[in-house]
């Protein structure tokens, strides 16, 4: 196995919400997550809204403070402890780790030309010395993202969603980062364009040898792009495995329910899948024991009392459920 570019141990992120000065109320958005993202991999994170997947991505970019645990970045050249960073280190880390946002309509300034948008990181980070050099780098990266010279002169409003997302990607890539967090980067796009952007991300990753963390709520998209998938629920990882293993050998009832909720293209498909009732509980008021027990169709007393451990087993497949072994025989799911 290749070495990990990003490695976390019991990583937690907390937000302070309301409450009085002496009795602050804490919201645990990410709760004790340990993951290794191998170099050059396409690491997927899925979950419903409110599961903490975005916060996890931000913590790895040092965009939200880490409350507990550790997270390290190691690209062979530089090594950083993300929990304790000086501002100089952070400045350098920003060149190495970048974010692609969800909504390409909101992420681009309407008053800047596409050239300026892509060039801005270079200028801010002082990566290029002259305007000529900047232009050259911008053109190179734009060509990689299939934007031509004509496009660079225009303003974002003249572009469609797919083209805008390609501009966002070009901007994220221009500082030659090693690590990219793509947060729901295709969720706002039409299916016909979505496939195009996914293929582009994939080819860039292979081309430039990047490491991606791909955050999405769409299991079918994740299945097609990622090498490894982690499923999150209420700030915790409930199941994590290489993509094929996860899809062929699903263990956690939550992951199974997510699968069966995907509308099938076959109009006559029997709705055999397990429906999930209710909604994800509020993270300020987390259920005891296994946090999924309020919606789990197979809940037993033990689930309400004990927090299940993340059991690591063969093939890099880990699952956090008290009953997964016996549930493997339940074919109905």
């Amino acid at each position: 196995m290749t070495e990990a570019l990003i490695s976390t141990k019991d990583l937690s992120v907390e937000f302070l919400i309301s409450g009085s000065l002496f009795k602050p109320k804490v919201l645990k958005a990410v709760d004790g997550i340990s993951i290794d993202i191998p170099k050059g991999s396409f690491f997927g994170v899925v979950g419903e809204s409110g599961s903490g997947k975005t916060t996890l991505g931000r913590a790895l970019l040092n965009a939200v403070p880490i409350a507990n645990g550790s997270a390290t970045y190691d690209d062979g050249e530089m090594k950083y402890d993300l929990a304790k960073m000086t501002s100089t280190e952070l400045k350098d880390y920003r060149k190495r780790a970048q974010l692609i946002f969800q909504d390409p309509y909101a992420a681009l300034s309407p008053r800047m030309t596409v050239r300026d948008i892509i060039a801005e990181p270079l200028e801010v980070m002082g990566l290029t010395k002259s305007r000529e050099e900047t232009d050259k780098v911008v053109r190179e990266i734009a060509a990689k993202c299939r934007l031509n010279l004509e496009h660079l002169r225009r303003f974002p409003h003249a572009f469609s969603g797919g083209q805008r997302q390609r501009i966002s990607i070009a901007r994220a890539l221009v500082s030659r980062p090693q690590f990219i967090v793509a947060d729901e980067s295709v969720a706002a796009l039409d299916v016909s364009i979505q496939a195009d952007v996914l293929n582009l991300l994939k080819s860039i990753q292979v081309d430039m040898g990047l490491t991606f963390m791909f955050i999405s709520h769409d299991l079918s998209v994740v299945a097609h792009t990622c090498d490894h998938v982690a499923v999150m629920y209420l700030g915790r990882i409930v199941e994590s495995a290489p993509t094929k293993e996860l899809f062929n050998n699903t263990r956690h009832p939550y992951t199974k329910a997510l699968f069966s909720a995907i509308p099938s293209l076959d109009p006559d498909a029997e709705k055999t899948g397990q429906r999930l009732y209710g909604e994800i509980p509020s993270p300020t008021n987390q259920p005891s024991g296994c946090t999924f027990h309020t919606r789990c169709p197979f809940v037993q007393d033990i689930c309400k009392q004990q927090v299940p451990k993340l059991e690591v087993s063969d093939k890099g497949h880990s699952v956090s459920c008290h009953r997964w072994k016996e549930l493997m025989d339940v074919a109905a799911l």
Binding site: N199, S220, I262, L265
Partner: peptide, 13 residues
């Protein structure tokens, strides 16, 4: 559309 029963073939935009 990404299809769940065929993860191998690339997406066709």
């Amino acid at each position: 559309l990404p299809k769940m029963d065929d993860l191998e073939s690339p997406l066709k935009p």
